[in-house]
């Protein structure tokens, strides 16, 4: 649902999302990276409804994912890092 204004050649980082590799730009947030690759929803509610990043400033807690083994991290507050392992909060 998003595209980057940056030169695609600059997307030199790689992150793993649910076991698959995706390119990432230095400086973009995990939430932006997930939305750019259309990796939504990012979580499900207790009743199973899909949710995705909403406020992108840390106030809504819709974008929480598992990052490098830490659960429920706010993706909108976290910049990507090369090799980062991201798991969306989705029940199969």
């Amino acid at each position: 649902m998003l595209r980057s204004l940056l030169d695609p050649a600059e997307a030199r980082l790689t992150v793993m999302v649910d076991g698959r590799p995706f390119d990432a730009h230095p400086g973009e947030t995990v939430a932006a990276c997930l939305m750019r690759h259309d990796l939504v929803p990012t979580r499900q509610t207790p009743t199973g409804r899909p949710r995705a990043p909403y406020c992108l400033m840390g106030a809504c807690f819709e974008c929480t994912v598992e990052l490098d083994g830490r659960t429920n991290v706010q993706a909108c507050l976290t910049p990507v890092r090369d090799g980062m392992v991201i798991c969306r909060n989705l029940r199969a």
């Binding site: 998003l2 595209r3 932006a32 899909p50 995705a52 990043p53 909403y54 992108l56 909108c76």
Partner: peptide, 25 residues
Amino acid sequence: HTLPGVVTVGALQSLLKGSAAVPSG
């Protein structure tokens, strides 16, 4: 308003200024 794809206008600002990302569609 809770569906994926719904964001705040501030969120679009944040994506543009912070992550150089804009809506693709």
